[in-house]
Design a protein around this nucleic acid. Structure first.
Lengths: 221, 221
DNA sequence: GCAAAAGTGTTATCCCTACACCCATGA
DNA sequence: TCATGGGTGTAGGGATAACACTTTTGC
Protein backbone atom coordinates (compact mmCIF):
# COMPACT_ATOMS: atom_id res chain seq x y z
CA UNK A 1 0.00 0.00 0.00
CA UNK A 2 1.07 3.54 -0.65
CA UNK A 3 0.19 6.19 1.91
CA UNK A 4 0.02 9.96 1.56
CA UNK A 5 -0.93 12.76 3.95
CA UNK A 6 -3.06 14.38 1.27
CA UNK A 7 -5.23 12.71 -1.36
CA UNK A 8 -3.58 12.31 -4.77
CA UNK A 9 -5.25 12.03 -8.16
CA UNK A 10 -4.49 9.33 -10.67
CA UNK A 11 -2.78 10.48 -13.85
CA UNK A 12 -3.28 8.77 -17.16
CA UNK A 13 -2.08 9.32 -20.71
CA UNK A 14 -4.69 8.92 -23.46
CA UNK A 15 -3.84 9.01 -27.15
CA UNK A 16 -5.77 10.02 -30.21
CA UNK A 17 -4.17 7.91 -32.91
CA UNK A 18 -4.84 9.20 -36.41
CA UNK A 19 -4.21 7.62 -39.75
CA UNK A 20 -5.42 7.91 -43.31
CA UNK A 21 -7.05 4.97 -44.95
CA UNK A 22 -9.23 4.91 -48.08
CA UNK A 23 -8.81 8.69 -48.34
CA UNK A 24 -10.49 9.09 -44.94
CA UNK A 25 -9.15 10.36 -41.66
CA UNK A 26 -9.54 7.56 -39.14
CA UNK A 27 -8.68 6.97 -35.53
CA UNK A 28 -7.98 3.97 -33.39
CA UNK A 29 -10.42 3.05 -30.65
CA UNK A 30 -10.49 0.18 -28.21
CA UNK A 31 -13.48 -1.51 -26.69
CA UNK A 32 -13.38 -1.31 -22.91
CA UNK A 33 -13.17 -4.67 -21.17
CA UNK A 34 -13.88 -3.35 -17.67
CA UNK A 35 -16.22 -0.99 -15.88
CA UNK A 36 -16.92 1.87 -16.08
CA UNK A 37 -18.18 2.15 -19.64
CA UNK A 38 -17.55 -1.58 -20.15
CA UNK A 39 -18.22 -2.55 -23.74
CA UNK A 40 -18.02 1.03 -24.98
CA UNK A 41 -15.39 2.40 -27.31
CA UNK A 42 -12.67 4.62 -25.88
CA UNK A 43 -9.28 6.12 -26.62
CA UNK A 44 -6.26 3.95 -25.88
CA UNK A 45 -4.57 4.99 -22.67
CA UNK A 46 -3.46 4.02 -19.22
CA UNK A 47 -1.78 5.07 -16.03
CA UNK A 48 1.46 6.98 -16.08
CA UNK A 49 4.04 4.98 -14.17
CA UNK A 50 6.07 6.64 -11.46
CA UNK A 51 9.34 6.04 -13.29
CA UNK A 52 8.38 7.21 -16.77
CA UNK A 53 7.98 10.65 -18.31
CA UNK A 54 4.64 11.68 -19.76
CA UNK A 55 5.80 11.30 -23.36
CA UNK A 56 7.20 7.88 -22.54
CA UNK A 57 3.87 6.78 -21.10
CA UNK A 58 2.10 7.89 -24.25
CA UNK A 59 4.62 6.09 -26.47
CA UNK A 60 4.28 2.96 -24.40
CA UNK A 61 0.49 2.97 -24.73
CA UNK A 62 0.82 3.58 -28.43
CA UNK A 63 3.21 0.62 -28.78
CA UNK A 64 1.01 -1.65 -26.69
CA UNK A 65 -2.08 -0.93 -28.78
CA UNK A 66 -0.54 -0.79 -32.23
CA UNK A 67 2.95 -2.27 -32.02
CA UNK A 68 4.12 0.94 -33.66
CA UNK A 69 6.98 3.14 -32.54
CA UNK A 70 8.93 6.02 -34.01
CA UNK A 71 5.94 8.04 -35.18
CA UNK A 72 4.93 11.63 -34.63
CA UNK A 73 3.52 12.21 -31.14
CA UNK A 74 2.58 15.50 -29.53
CA UNK A 75 0.98 16.51 -26.27
CA UNK A 76 -2.50 17.88 -26.89
CA UNK A 77 -4.04 19.13 -23.63
CA UNK A 78 -4.64 18.00 -20.09
CA UNK A 79 -8.18 17.20 -19.05
CA UNK A 80 -8.94 17.23 -15.37
CA UNK A 81 -12.60 17.94 -14.66
CA UNK A 82 -13.41 16.67 -11.19
CA UNK A 83 -16.06 14.20 -12.31
CA UNK A 84 -14.63 13.06 -15.62
CA UNK A 85 -14.14 9.56 -14.20
CA UNK A 86 -16.92 8.17 -11.99
CA UNK A 87 -14.55 6.06 -9.88
CA UNK A 88 -11.99 8.53 -8.62
CA UNK A 89 -10.18 11.71 -9.57
CA UNK A 90 -8.34 10.98 -12.78
CA UNK A 91 -6.40 13.65 -14.64
CA UNK A 92 -5.46 12.68 -18.17
CA UNK A 93 -2.70 14.12 -20.28
CA UNK A 94 -3.96 13.69 -23.82
CA UNK A 95 -1.63 13.13 -26.77
CA UNK A 96 -2.16 12.65 -30.45
CA UNK A 97 -0.15 10.53 -32.83
CA UNK A 98 0.01 10.30 -36.62
CA UNK A 99 0.54 6.93 -38.27
CA UNK A 100 1.73 6.57 -41.87
CA UNK A 101 -0.91 4.84 -43.94
CA UNK A 102 1.32 1.86 -44.72
CA UNK A 103 1.83 0.97 -41.06
CA UNK A 104 -1.72 0.53 -39.81
CA UNK A 105 -1.62 -3.22 -39.23
CA UNK A 106 -2.78 -3.77 -35.67
CA UNK A 107 -1.32 -6.37 -33.40
CA UNK A 108 -3.49 -8.24 -30.95
CA UNK A 109 -4.78 -5.80 -28.35
CA UNK A 110 -3.40 -6.21 -24.89
CA UNK A 111 -5.79 -4.95 -22.26
CA UNK A 112 -8.85 -4.51 -24.42
CA UNK A 113 -11.35 -6.79 -26.10
CA UNK A 114 -11.01 -5.31 -29.50
CA UNK A 115 -9.44 -2.48 -31.37
CA UNK A 116 -10.48 -0.89 -34.63
CA UNK A 117 -10.11 2.04 -36.96
CA UNK A 118 -13.09 4.38 -37.30
CA UNK A 119 -13.67 7.14 -39.79
CA UNK A 120 -13.99 10.54 -38.10
CA UNK A 121 -17.46 11.06 -39.50
CA UNK A 122 -18.72 7.70 -38.26
CA UNK A 123 -17.49 7.44 -34.69
CA UNK A 124 -19.34 5.29 -32.18
CA UNK A 125 -20.38 6.64 -28.77
CA UNK A 126 -17.24 7.23 -26.72
CA UNK A 127 -16.56 6.73 -23.02
CA UNK A 128 -15.66 9.47 -20.50
CA UNK A 129 -14.94 12.93 -21.95
CA UNK A 130 -13.26 11.33 -24.94
CA UNK A 131 -15.53 13.09 -27.46
CA UNK A 132 -14.09 16.43 -26.30
CA UNK A 133 -10.55 15.09 -26.53
CA UNK A 134 -11.10 13.77 -30.05
CA UNK A 135 -12.64 17.04 -31.09
CA UNK A 136 -9.73 19.09 -29.82
CA UNK A 137 -7.27 16.74 -31.51
CA UNK A 138 -9.05 17.11 -34.84
CA UNK A 139 -9.02 20.89 -34.52
CA UNK A 140 -5.32 20.91 -33.68
CA UNK A 141 -4.56 18.69 -36.65
CA UNK A 142 -6.54 20.85 -39.07
CA UNK A 143 -4.88 24.00 -37.74
CA UNK A 144 -1.41 22.50 -38.03
CA UNK A 145 -1.98 21.60 -41.68
CA UNK A 146 -1.84 25.30 -42.44
CA UNK A 147 1.29 26.28 -40.62
CA UNK A 148 3.41 23.14 -40.40
CA UNK A 149 4.53 20.15 -42.41
CA UNK A 150 2.69 17.76 -40.11
CA UNK A 151 0.73 16.12 -42.94
CA UNK A 152 3.87 14.44 -44.28
CA UNK A 153 3.76 12.23 -41.19
CA UNK A 154 0.86 10.38 -42.76
CA UNK A 155 2.74 9.52 -45.93
CA UNK A 156 4.54 6.25 -46.68
CA UNK A 157 8.18 6.22 -47.76
CA UNK A 158 7.31 7.29 -51.29
CA UNK A 159 4.13 8.80 -52.63
CA UNK A 160 2.71 10.79 -55.53
CA UNK A 161 1.63 14.40 -55.38
CA UNK A 162 -1.97 13.40 -55.94
CA UNK A 163 -1.82 11.04 -52.98
CA UNK A 164 -0.48 13.87 -50.86
CA UNK A 165 -3.22 16.18 -52.09
CA UNK A 166 -5.85 13.60 -51.12
CA UNK A 167 -4.50 13.64 -47.57
CA UNK A 168 -4.96 17.39 -47.30
CA UNK A 169 -8.40 17.14 -48.83
CA UNK A 170 -9.49 14.38 -46.47
CA UNK A 171 -8.41 16.30 -43.37
CA UNK A 172 -9.65 19.71 -44.48
CA UNK A 173 -12.81 18.31 -45.99
CA UNK A 174 -12.58 20.35 -49.16
CA UNK A 175 -11.25 19.90 -52.66
CA UNK A 176 -8.08 21.73 -53.62
CA UNK A 177 -6.87 23.03 -56.95
CA UNK A 178 -4.31 20.64 -58.38
CA UNK A 179 -1.96 23.21 -59.88
CA UNK A 180 -2.00 25.51 -56.89
CA UNK A 181 -1.47 22.63 -54.49
CA UNK A 182 1.54 21.40 -56.42
CA UNK A 183 3.11 24.83 -56.63
CA UNK A 184 2.59 25.34 -52.92
CA UNK A 185 3.90 22.00 -51.72
CA UNK A 186 6.94 22.05 -53.97
CA UNK A 187 7.78 25.58 -52.86
CA UNK A 188 7.97 24.33 -49.28
CA UNK A 189 11.17 22.59 -50.35
CA UNK A 190 10.47 19.65 -48.07
CA UNK A 191 9.93 16.85 -50.58
CA UNK A 192 12.01 15.65 -53.52
CA UNK A 193 11.60 13.37 -56.50
CA UNK A 194 12.86 9.85 -56.02
CA UNK A 195 13.43 9.39 -59.77
CA UNK A 196 11.03 6.44 -59.70
CA UNK A 197 7.54 6.33 -61.14
CA UNK A 198 4.37 4.78 -59.84
CA UNK A 199 3.48 2.35 -62.62
CA UNK A 200 0.70 0.15 -61.30
CA UNK A 201 -2.22 2.24 -62.49
CA UNK A 202 -4.08 2.06 -65.72
CA UNK A 203 -3.07 5.57 -66.70
CA UNK A 204 -0.05 7.76 -67.08
CA UNK A 205 2.62 6.92 -64.45
CA UNK A 206 3.15 9.47 -61.67
CA UNK A 207 6.44 10.70 -60.27
CA UNK A 208 7.21 9.40 -56.80
CA UNK A 209 8.40 11.76 -54.08
CA UNK A 210 9.89 11.34 -50.65
CA UNK A 211 10.08 13.64 -47.62
CA UNK A 212 13.55 15.15 -47.25
CA UNK A 213 13.72 14.99 -43.46
CA UNK A 214 11.17 12.53 -42.19
CA UNK A 215 11.78 13.17 -38.49
CA UNK A 216 11.19 16.83 -38.55
CA UNK A 217 7.97 18.84 -38.57
CA UNK A 218 8.65 22.42 -39.61
CA UNK A 219 6.64 25.52 -38.89
CA UNK A 220 6.01 27.20 -42.22
CA UNK A 221 5.04 30.67 -43.43
CA UNK B 1 -3.86 9.15 5.74
CA UNK B 2 -4.83 8.26 2.21
CA UNK B 3 -3.97 4.82 0.91
CA UNK B 4 -3.72 3.55 -2.66
CA UNK B 5 -2.80 0.19 -4.16
CA UNK B 6 -0.53 1.90 -6.67
CA UNK B 7 1.70 4.94 -6.17
CA UNK B 8 0.18 8.24 -7.27
CA UNK B 9 1.97 11.40 -8.39
CA UNK B 10 1.25 14.83 -7.00
CA UNK B 11 -0.33 17.27 -9.43
CA UNK B 12 0.25 21.00 -9.25
CA UNK B 13 -0.79 24.02 -11.28
CA UNK B 14 1.92 26.62 -11.98
CA UNK B 15 1.20 29.94 -13.63
CA UNK B 16 3.26 32.24 -15.77
CA UNK B 17 1.72 35.63 -15.03
CA UNK B 18 2.56 38.24 -17.64
CA UNK B 19 2.02 41.95 -17.62
CA UNK B 20 3.38 45.04 -19.35
CA UNK B 21 5.04 47.73 -17.31
CA UNK B 22 7.34 50.53 -18.49
CA UNK B 23 6.99 49.19 -22.04
CA UNK B 24 8.52 45.89 -20.95
CA UNK B 25 7.08 42.41 -20.78
CA UNK B 26 7.32 41.29 -17.17
CA UNK B 27 6.32 38.29 -15.15
CA UNK B 28 5.48 37.62 -11.55
CA UNK B 29 7.80 35.45 -9.48
CA UNK B 30 7.72 34.46 -5.85
CA UNK B 31 10.63 33.71 -3.59
CA UNK B 32 10.39 30.21 -2.19
CA UNK B 33 10.04 30.04 1.59
CA UNK B 34 10.64 26.29 1.89
CA UNK B 35 12.95 23.62 0.56
CA UNK B 36 13.72 22.58 -2.08
CA UNK B 37 15.12 25.66 -3.79
CA UNK B 38 14.44 27.69 -0.64
CA UNK B 39 15.22 31.35 -1.24
CA UNK B 40 15.14 30.97 -5.03
CA UNK B 41 12.62 32.58 -7.33
CA UNK B 42 9.91 30.41 -8.84
CA UNK B 43 6.56 30.53 -10.62
CA UNK B 44 3.49 30.85 -8.42
CA UNK B 45 1.68 27.54 -8.09
CA UNK B 46 0.43 24.85 -5.80
CA UNK B 47 -1.35 21.56 -5.49
CA UNK B 48 -4.55 20.87 -7.35
CA UNK B 49 -7.24 20.02 -4.83
CA UNK B 50 -9.33 16.91 -5.27
CA UNK B 51 -12.53 18.90 -5.60
CA UNK B 52 -11.43 21.55 -8.08
CA UNK B 53 -10.92 21.50 -11.83
CA UNK B 54 -7.49 22.31 -13.25
CA UNK B 55 -8.54 25.76 -14.46
CA UNK B 56 -10.03 26.49 -11.04
CA UNK B 57 -6.78 25.55 -9.34
CA UNK B 58 -4.87 27.92 -11.61
CA UNK B 59 -7.35 30.74 -10.97
CA UNK B 60 -7.13 30.16 -7.24
CA UNK B 61 -3.34 30.36 -7.27
CA UNK B 62 -3.53 33.48 -9.38
CA UNK B 63 -5.94 35.09 -6.94
CA UNK B 64 -3.87 34.07 -3.93
CA UNK B 65 -0.69 35.59 -5.34
CA UNK B 66 -2.08 38.71 -6.95
CA UNK B 67 -5.59 39.25 -5.64
CA UNK B 68 -6.63 39.43 -9.27
CA UNK B 69 -9.50 37.57 -10.90
CA UNK B 70 -11.34 37.75 -14.17
CA UNK B 71 -8.28 37.91 -16.40
CA UNK B 72 -7.23 35.87 -19.41
CA UNK B 73 -5.96 32.43 -18.44
CA UNK B 74 -5.01 29.57 -20.72
CA UNK B 75 -3.52 26.15 -20.23
CA UNK B 76 0.00 26.03 -21.62
CA UNK B 77 1.44 22.52 -21.34
CA UNK B 78 1.91 19.75 -18.81
CA UNK B 79 5.41 19.06 -17.53
CA UNK B 80 6.02 15.67 -15.99
CA UNK B 81 9.67 14.65 -16.21
CA UNK B 82 10.35 12.02 -13.57
CA UNK B 83 12.98 14.01 -11.71
CA UNK B 84 11.67 17.53 -12.12
CA UNK B 85 11.04 17.73 -8.37
CA UNK B 86 13.69 16.22 -6.08
CA UNK B 87 11.20 15.24 -3.37
CA UNK B 88 8.66 13.12 -5.17
CA UNK B 89 6.95 12.70 -8.50
CA UNK B 90 5.21 15.98 -9.27
CA UNK B 91 3.39 16.59 -12.52
CA UNK B 92 2.56 20.22 -13.14
CA UNK B 93 -0.10 21.59 -15.43
CA UNK B 94 1.28 24.97 -16.49
CA UNK B 95 -0.95 27.93 -17.29
CA UNK B 96 -0.28 31.46 -18.37
CA UNK B 97 -2.26 34.57 -17.51
CA UNK B 98 -2.28 38.11 -18.88
CA UNK B 99 -2.78 41.03 -16.51
CA UNK B 100 -3.83 44.49 -17.72
CA UNK B 101 -1.12 47.02 -16.93
CA UNK B 102 -3.37 49.03 -14.60
CA UNK B 103 -4.05 46.07 -12.31
CA UNK B 104 -0.57 45.03 -11.29
CA UNK B 105 -0.75 46.10 -7.64
CA UNK B 106 0.24 43.08 -5.63
CA UNK B 107 -1.37 42.16 -2.37
CA UNK B 108 0.62 40.65 0.46
CA UNK B 109 1.88 37.27 -0.64
CA UNK B 110 0.37 34.31 1.12
CA UNK B 111 2.68 31.35 1.14
CA UNK B 112 5.85 33.02 -0.07
CA UNK B 113 8.37 35.42 1.38
CA UNK B 114 8.20 37.90 -1.39
CA UNK B 115 6.76 38.43 -4.80
CA UNK B 116 7.95 40.71 -7.57
CA UNK B 117 7.70 41.60 -11.23
CA UNK B 118 10.75 40.85 -13.39
CA UNK B 119 11.46 41.93 -16.94
CA UNK B 120 11.77 38.96 -19.29
CA UNK B 121 15.31 39.92 -20.26
CA UNK B 122 16.46 40.18 -16.64
CA UNK B 123 15.09 37.09 -14.94
CA UNK B 124 16.80 35.67 -11.88
CA UNK B 125 17.73 31.98 -11.63
CA UNK B 126 14.54 29.97 -11.41
CA UNK B 127 13.72 26.83 -9.44
CA UNK B 128 12.78 23.42 -10.88
CA UNK B 129 12.19 23.30 -14.65
CA UNK B 130 10.58 26.73 -14.52
CA UNK B 131 12.98 28.22 -17.11
CA UNK B 132 11.55 25.81 -19.70
CA UNK B 133 7.99 26.67 -18.70
CA UNK B 134 8.64 30.41 -18.95
CA UNK B 135 10.28 29.94 -22.31
CA UNK B 136 7.36 28.01 -23.72
CA UNK B 137 4.90 30.58 -22.38
CA UNK B 138 6.81 33.41 -24.05
CA UNK B 139 6.83 31.54 -27.36
CA UNK B 140 3.10 30.87 -27.12
CA UNK B 141 2.41 34.52 -26.38
CA UNK B 142 4.51 35.75 -29.29
CA UNK B 143 2.84 33.28 -31.64
CA UNK B 144 -0.65 34.27 -30.50
CA UNK B 145 0.04 37.95 -31.19
CA UNK B 146 0.01 37.09 -34.87
CA UNK B 147 -3.20 35.15 -35.08
CA UNK B 148 -5.37 36.33 -32.19
CA UNK B 149 -6.44 39.43 -30.35
CA UNK B 150 -4.71 38.29 -27.18
CA UNK B 151 -2.66 41.48 -26.81
CA UNK B 152 -5.78 43.48 -25.92
CA UNK B 153 -5.82 41.58 -22.63
CA UNK B 154 -2.86 43.69 -21.52
CA UNK B 155 -4.63 46.99 -22.11
CA UNK B 156 -6.41 49.09 -19.48
CA UNK B 157 -10.01 50.20 -19.97
CA UNK B 158 -8.99 52.95 -22.40
CA UNK B 159 -5.74 53.44 -24.25
CA UNK B 160 -4.19 55.20 -27.21
CA UNK B 161 -3.09 53.55 -30.43
CA UNK B 162 0.51 54.36 -29.65
CA UNK B 163 0.25 52.63 -26.28
CA UNK B 164 -1.18 49.58 -28.02
CA UNK B 165 1.63 49.64 -30.56
CA UNK B 166 4.19 49.76 -27.74
CA UNK B 167 2.71 46.56 -26.34
CA UNK B 168 3.19 44.73 -29.63
CA UNK B 169 6.69 46.11 -29.95
CA UNK B 170 7.66 45.09 -26.43
CA UNK B 171 6.47 41.50 -26.91
CA UNK B 172 7.79 41.07 -30.44
CA UNK B 173 11.01 42.92 -29.73
CA UNK B 174 10.91 44.95 -32.91
CA UNK B 175 9.72 48.35 -33.99
CA UNK B 176 6.61 48.56 -36.14
CA UNK B 177 5.54 51.10 -38.73
CA UNK B 178 3.02 53.49 -37.22
CA UNK B 179 0.75 53.89 -40.24
CA UNK B 180 0.68 50.21 -41.11
CA UNK B 181 0.05 49.23 -37.50
CA UNK B 182 -2.90 51.60 -37.24
CA UNK B 183 -4.45 50.42 -40.49
CA UNK B 184 -4.05 46.81 -39.40
CA UNK B 185 -5.43 47.15 -35.90
CA UNK B 186 -8.40 49.28 -36.95
CA UNK B 187 -9.24 46.82 -39.73
CA UNK B 188 -9.58 44.10 -37.09
CA UNK B 189 -12.75 45.88 -36.03
CA UNK B 190 -12.16 45.01 -32.40
CA UNK B 191 -11.55 48.44 -30.86
CA UNK B 192 -13.52 51.67 -31.05
CA UNK B 193 -13.01 55.33 -30.17
CA UNK B 194 -14.31 56.39 -26.78
CA UNK B 195 -14.72 60.01 -27.91
CA UNK B 196 -12.34 61.11 -25.15
CA UNK B 197 -8.79 62.31 -25.56
CA UNK B 198 -5.69 61.68 -23.52
CA UNK B 199 -4.68 65.21 -22.47
CA UNK B 200 -2.01 64.81 -19.83
CA UNK B 201 0.99 64.89 -22.11
CA UNK B 202 3.00 67.85 -23.26
CA UNK B 203 2.08 67.26 -26.87
CA UNK B 204 -0.88 66.81 -29.12
CA UNK B 205 -3.70 64.91 -27.36
CA UNK B 206 -4.36 61.35 -28.56
CA UNK B 207 -7.71 59.71 -29.17
CA UNK B 208 -8.64 57.09 -26.59
CA UNK B 209 -9.92 53.69 -27.64
CA UNK B 210 -11.55 50.79 -25.89
CA UNK B 211 -11.84 47.07 -26.73
CA UNK B 212 -15.31 46.21 -28.03
CA UNK B 213 -15.63 42.84 -26.32
CA UNK B 214 -13.16 42.64 -23.48
CA UNK B 215 -13.93 39.01 -22.56
CA UNK B 216 -13.29 37.53 -25.91
CA UNK B 217 -10.04 36.60 -27.64
CA UNK B 218 -10.64 36.09 -31.35
CA UNK B 219 -8.64 34.08 -33.81
CA UNK B 220 -7.86 36.39 -36.71
CA UNK B 221 -6.81 35.99 -40.33
C1' DG C 1 7.80 79.61 -31.46
C1' DC C 2 9.48 75.33 -30.23
C1' DA C 3 9.49 70.59 -28.65
C1' DA C 4 6.94 66.33 -28.69
C1' DA C 5 3.97 63.07 -30.06
C1' DA C 6 -0.50 62.40 -33.05
C1' DG C 7 -2.33 61.68 -37.16
C1' DT C 8 -2.74 60.61 -42.10
C1' DG C 9 -2.30 58.11 -48.16
C1' DT C 10 -0.12 56.38 -51.97
C1' DT C 11 2.63 53.23 -54.49
C1' DA C 12 5.15 48.94 -55.47
C1' DT C 13 5.57 44.19 -54.56
C1' DC C 14 4.36 39.72 -53.41
C1' DC C 15 1.32 36.03 -52.80
C1' DC C 16 -2.85 33.65 -53.54
C1' DT C 17 -6.54 32.28 -56.58
C1' DA C 18 -8.94 31.01 -60.61
C1' DC C 19 -8.83 28.52 -64.60
C1' DA C 20 -8.23 24.42 -69.25
C1' DC C 21 -5.72 21.65 -72.07
C1' DC C 22 -2.24 18.17 -73.59
C1' DC C 23 0.43 13.81 -72.20
C1' DA C 24 1.70 8.98 -71.15
C1' DT C 25 0.25 4.69 -70.23
C1' DG C 26 -2.63 0.09 -70.06
C1' DA C 27 -6.38 -2.26 -71.72
C1' DT D 1 -8.25 4.34 -79.83
C1' DC D 2 -10.03 5.15 -75.69
C1' DA D 3 -10.29 5.78 -70.80
C1' DT D 4 -7.73 7.34 -66.88
C1' DG D 5 -5.28 10.15 -64.11
C1' DG D 6 -0.59 13.06 -64.62
C1' DG D 7 1.32 17.14 -65.57
C1' DT D 8 1.78 22.17 -66.66
C1' DG D 9 1.45 28.45 -66.87
C1' DT D 10 -0.58 32.84 -66.72
C1' DA D 11 -3.18 36.76 -65.39
C1' DG D 12 -5.91 39.45 -61.98
C1' DG D 13 -6.90 40.89 -57.25
C1' DG D 14 -5.91 41.57 -52.53
C1' DA D 15 -2.99 42.06 -48.92
C1' DT D 16 1.35 43.67 -47.13
C1' DA D 17 5.41 46.82 -46.80
C1' DA D 18 7.86 50.98 -47.53
C1' DC D 19 7.89 55.65 -46.86
C1' DA D 20 7.46 61.71 -44.86
C1' DC D 21 5.10 65.52 -43.73
C1' DT D 22 1.45 68.29 -41.27
C1' DT D 23 -1.23 69.05 -36.91
C1' DT D 24 -2.16 69.99 -32.15
C1' DT D 25 -1.02 70.87 -27.81
C1' DG D 26 1.86 72.62 -23.43
C1' DC D 27 5.51 75.27 -22.06
Amino acid sequence: MYQYRHPHPSVTADIVIFTLQDEQLKLLLIKRAVEPYKGQWALPGGFVRMDEDLDAAARRELAEETGISGVYLEQLYTFGAVDRDPRERVITVAYYALIPSDRIVLQAATDADEAGWFAMDALPALAFDHPAIVDMARQRLVAKLDYSTIAFQFMPETFTLTELQRVYEAIRQEVLDKRNFRKWVLALDQIEETGEMKRDTASRPAKLYRVRDRERVDIIK
